[in-house]
Structure formats: structure tokens, C-alpha cells
């Protein structure tokens, strides 16, 4: 059981998190500036039709699986970590909160607004008006940028939370 939880579980949590944060950084460092340039020469539709929807699908499911696997690893210690009930849980508690806020941003702000921007799912046949699309684009952009900002301390607290690393970084 420990092997599944701490071996396979942690490995899958990290692999999932790499996929999630990798795509998040791709959106922010590559796709957003790329789309701006593509919009100027009329080549944006190829990206918004074939690349962005695929990236978003992987992105949102990776966010969910990363969160669920993280919760699985913490197991019965999840409430204690989130409520900072023991000093040893402070670092992972901060990491878990940052990850949780990022996960909520993905499913609560980025995905619903990107569906409007890219005419996906219920908007495929009924696209929203341009004004609403622009508003949705800005909201999704800011949520994505907030997540990029939060990913920096989140990764720090995740990697600095385990055993030797935690003692080296935080003492005790």
C-alpha cells in the first residue's frame, strides 16, 4: 500500500503536475505572445482551432488529476495540512493551498471563459458576442497569469516539503 501511495502515487502526482504546469507555462510564455503575432498576419485560426483546444483539454484534466493525486498522498493528513495543525505541515500546507487555488482557477475561471473564447462545447453552435468574448479572454488571461505567478511559490513549497529538503529549508 505504501508503495502505491508514496511510490506510484507521488510519481504520478509529479508527472501530472509537470503536464499541468508545463502547459500553463506554454500558454503564458509561448501561446499568448504567439497568438498576438499570429493575429497580426492572419494565421491565428490554425492555433485557436487545432492547438489551443487540445492543450486546454490536457491542461484541465492534468489539473484535476494532480490535485486528486496530491490529496491521495496526503490522505488522512490532508485536513491537518490545510488547517496548519502541526508545524511540520506548514510548508506542505502552503504548497497544497497554492495548488488548490490554482486548481480552482483552472476549473472555475480559465476553462469556462476559454470555452467562450474558443467556441467550445456548448458555444460551438452558439458563439457569444464579441464584447462578451473579449471580457472572457481578459478574465481567463488574468487567471492564467495569476496561476503562473502562484506556480513559482507552489513549486518551491512542494519540493521543499519532503523529508531532508524540509529540514534543510525550514529546520527541525
Amino acid at each position: 500500500m505504501d508503495f502505491i501511495l508514496y511510490g506510484v502515487g507521488r510519481w504520478l502526482h509529479i508527472a501530472s503536475g509537470v503536464l499541468w504546469v508545463g502547459l500553463l507555462w506554454y500558454f503564458n510564455f509561448v501561446q499568448v505572445p504567439g497568438l498576438k503575432a499570429a493575429g497580426a498576419d492572419g494565421t491565428a485560426p490554425g492555433i485557436t482551432k487545432h492547438i489551443a483546444p487540445r492543450a486546454l483539454e490536457l491542461f484541465r484534466w492534468a489539473a484535476l488529476s494532480t490535485w486528486l493525486l496530491g490529496a491521495m498522498i496526503l490522505g488522512s493528513k490532508l485536513p491537518a495540512a490545510l488547517l496548519f495543525q502541526d508545524k511540520a505541515y506548514y510548508p506542505i500546507g502552503i504548497g497544497a493551498w497554492l495548488g488548490t487555488i490554482m486548481f480552482l482557477n483552472v476549473w472555475g475561471l480559465i476553462w469556462p471563459n476559454q470555452k467562450k473564447v474558443l467556441n467550445l462545447y456548448q458555444y460551438a453552435q452558439n458563439p457569444v458576442a464579441d464584447a462578451e468574448k473579449n471580457k472572457a479572454r481578459r478574465t481567463a488571461f488574468l487567471a492564467s497569469r495569476i496561476n503562473t505567478m502562484l506556480s513559482i511559490p507552489m513549486l518551491f513549497f512542494m519540493v521543499a516539503s519532503g523529508g531532508l529538503f524540509r529540514r534543510a529549508m525550514f529546520g527541525g
Binding site: F29, K87, I94, M149, I152, P153, F170
Partner: peptide, 30 residues
Amino acid sequence: MKNPLDSIPGTIICGLILTVVLYYVVLLAR
């Protein structure tokens, strides 16, 4: 004032500042 999140360097600097602040919060709270 311009929103720092509108630029990539601004976003990264905000993330680094937040990391340092949270690190010291955890360190001092322990």
C-alpha cells in the same frame, strides 16, 4: 499603475516576491 501580470517579467517577479514572503512567514511561524 500598470498591472504587473500583463508582462511576463512582472509575473515572474511577483511570483518570486511571494515565494520569499511565504518562506519567511513559514520560517517565523515555526
